[in-house]
Design a binder for these strands. Sequence first.
DNA 1: CCTATATACTTCCATATGCAAGCAATAAGG
DNA 2: CCTTATTGCTTGCATATGGAAGTATATAGG
Lengths: 148, 148
Amino acid sequence: MATPSFSAVLRLLGANARLEERFSNGLGSLHGLALKEVLLLMHLEQAPRHRLSRIDLAKRLYVSPSTVTRMAAPLEKLRMVGREADPRDARLAYVVLTEAGQELVANARASLEVMAADIFRDRWTKPEIASLADLLGRLTAGQPGDLG
Amino acid sequence: MATPSFSAVLRLLGANARLEERFSNGLGSLHGLALKEVLLLMHLEQAPRHRLSRIDLAKRLYVSPSTVTRMAAPLEKLRMVGREADPRDARLAYVVLTEAGQELVANARASLEVMAADIFRDRWTKPEIASLADLLGRLTAGQPGDLG
DNA sequence: CCTATATACTTCCATATGCAAGCAATAAGG
DNA sequence: CCTTATTGCTTGCATATGGAAGTATATAGG
């Protein structure tokens, strides 16, 4: 029917939809945060000084700057992140991971790793999982701040 | 850092975001339709008698039934799909692909296959693409109406 | 310096989407 | 038959998101 390339793309779209559904169901009840919010915190955790500008976060999360502004607001209210100005450039308003945020992201990451392992539990060998991760990594290569 | 399973999941999310961005940019200008609308038409094309109930479409597109209702409305206005009642069950309102819809989906599919090939143009061998498609197919297995 | 351009962020508006509620029709069980 | 539960679809409401416009700051070029 479809070319192999097209088939790969179509299946990636489907696999993504299934994964998002699965993770959303499991995660919200556990930590009260959406998957995207946890990813935001994970990017901060990985960044130097645990902080990133909203623009950098937007690039890493593949969303618009306005979305980052609105995602950060409730996280700031929950004291998971703080706001920090740059002394050299008054335009910058870094999003900084707090202590509480670090704790939460550690727990959420553990939950996510369990859920991820569950997805491959049946009918997958370790080399197959590694191969999938490797091939997918080539599709996202060249981006700053790869989490995985 | 992350377990291989978690890494695969994270990269899949990122790859999906990049692909959607790329396909949205290229497709809208070509045929005036969003990627999701083309996928809807492709599912109809593949279905017996070129028609599906809104519920079946929702499952295949991984969206809610209300979204299908609202996606079909403008396509019906454009005469890409029609509405057909079931003589046995008056609750069913099939979405049917029209002649014009078949033409459009053929053209759009060709565009999508070119775009898909573009994504893998550099640094990918045919076996690698096939392997990726195969592995991703295992994540979506068991679903009705696989397009690829 | 002064002006023009670019950047970071925020806010407004339009659109997309899921969920709950509602309606119509069918199916199931007495 | 009649009642109840189920199913397919639509609509109202709340939320999420991108893009355009607006503000403030920084940079580049005379």
